[in-house]
Design a protein around this nucleic acid. Structure first.
Lengths: 138, 138
DNA sequence: TCTCGAGTTTAGCATGGGCTAACTTTGTGT
DNA sequence: ACACAAAGTTAGCCCATGCTAAACTCGAGA
């Protein structure tokens, strides 16, 4: 049926790094007030040059505000994307733990999985979480 | 403590397309006896040139056997990879359906998710499937 | 103040994965 | 037997994502 296999997967990849970056930028800002390029270098373990490239791309895409030698900031769109990504990430991670995956593995796998979870699947995970909560307390 | 965020995700990406290709090649072969490049063109909705490029890479990687103007075949390693990928894919897809995701969405999302599921998470999904089976029949 | 190290930017490069356009090969139907 | 369509290949292009090396800027301390 699909006819176009993996079309969604390929499209997802385009936005993955963008989501990871804005999510991490939001994290740094809420943690320490500002986010510097070097923080991203450390978080993702890539070179300065790579972070610079990527930030330039995100700037073009209207997700971040960058001025030479200044901290990185999120645009409104960037912040909204970051918040959505964070929420999705948290649900996926919690869901994985709820089916018995260890905290460490859940943290790692959720990073890869979150970008491929459609709204419908996310809703199913939320639902399932709610149910397993009820069961625990009964 | 992550320290190296998304290192696994980036590594996964390198093998994603390879897995998708060998999986699809195996599928075509078991379906119709042979797999031609044009079948992959249709399955992935990419150009002949792209399929050619990719097959050349898989050939270099020792996963497929290709000779000009001949059908594509899998090496032993390629076939093993394909079978493993297929099994993983099936489990993820069935698991998604078991938590209430529609067949259509499960088919699409599992394509993206399967490559990021660690052995531990896969085992947890299998376990969870077993349990939900038991519940149904009781 | 001025120097030095941390942080940042730039230049130049590689590879993956995508494209179109133009070409060649294969094999089928008349 | 041969022409033609379908399949495959080649050349040349693009962008994303990574790298190293070198240059530049900024701010704090001597």
């Amino acid at each position: 049926m699909p006819a176009l296999k993996h079309a969604r997967v390929r499209k997802d990849h385009d936005s993955e790094i963008a989501e990871d970056y804005v999510e991490e930028i939001l994290h740094q800002i809420s943690l320490r007030g500002i986010c510097r390029a070097v923080d991203l270098v450390k978080a993702f373990a890539v070179s300065h040059a790579t972070v610079n490239n990527t930030l330039a791309r995100l700037h073009r895409a209207g997700l971040v505000k960058t001025e030479p030698y200044r901290p990185v900031e999120l645009t409104l769109r960037g912040r909204r994307l970051a918040i959505a990504a964070k929420k999705r990430h948290e649900i996926v991670e919690e869901f994985l733990r709820s089916i018995g995956v260890s905290a460490e593995t859940a943290a790692i796998d959720s990073e890869g999985i979150e970008h491929h979870v459609s709204p419908e699947t996310l809703a199913a995970m939320k639902q399932s979480l709610k149910r397993s909560c009820l069961e625990e307390r009964k």
